[in-house]
Amino acid sequence: MRVDARKNYDRLLAVAGEVFADEGADASLRDIARRAGVGLGTLYRHFPTREALLETLLRASFEALAERAKVLESSDSADEALVAWMQETTEFTYRQRGIIALMMGAIEDTNSALHDSCVMLRAAGTALLTRAQAEGKARDDLSGAELFDLIAALAWLREQPSHAARADHLFTLIADAILTDSSGAHSGAGSEPGTTAPTETVPPPAG
Rank of each mutant, 00 (worst) to 15 (best):
V3C: 00
R6C: 00
R11P: 00
R11W: 01
V15Q: 01
A16G: 01
G17M: 09
E18C: 06
V19I: 14
V19H: 00
V19Y: 00
F20V: 15
A21Y: 03
A21P: 03
D22G: 03
L29R: 08
D31R: 15
R34M: 01
R34S: 10
A36I: 05
G37V: 07
G39N: 12
L40C: 00
T42A: 05
F47Q: 08
F47V: 04
F47C: 02
R50H: 04
R50T: 07
L54V: 00
L54W: 03
E55K: 00
A60L: 09
L65K: 05
A66F: 01
E67S: 13
E67L: 08
R68L: 09
R68F: 10
K70P: 01
L72A: 10
S75H: 01
D76N: 06
D76H: 11
D76A: 15
D79A: 14
V83F: 11
V83E: 11
W85Q: 06
E88T: 12
T89I: 02
E91P: 00
Y94V: 03
R95C: 02
Q96S: 03
R97G: 09
A101V: 03
M104C: 05
G105W: 05
A106C: 12
D109E: 12
N111H: 13
N111V: 09
S112Q: 07
A113F: 08
H115S: 13
S117Q: 12
C118R: 02
C118G: 14
V119A: 14
M120L: 15
R122L: 15
R122D: 12
T126C: 06
L128V: 07
T130K: 12
A134V: 11
K137L: 15
D140S: 14
L142V: 15
G144H: 09
L147W: 10
F148I: 07
F148R: 09
D149F: 07
I151L: 06
A152H: 11
W156V: 04
W156G: 10
L157S: 11
L157W: 03
R158G: 10
E159S: 13
Q160L: 12
P161T: 03
S162H: 14
A164C: 05
A164K: 06
A167Y: 06
H169P: 00
F171N: 02
I174G: 05
A175D: 03
D176K: 06
A177G: 09
D181I: 07
D181F: 05
A185P: 00
S187G: 03
S187L: 11
S187V: 14
S187T: 09
A189M: 10
G190A: 08
S191T: 15
S191G: 01
P198F: 08
T201L: 11
P205N: 04
A206Y: 00
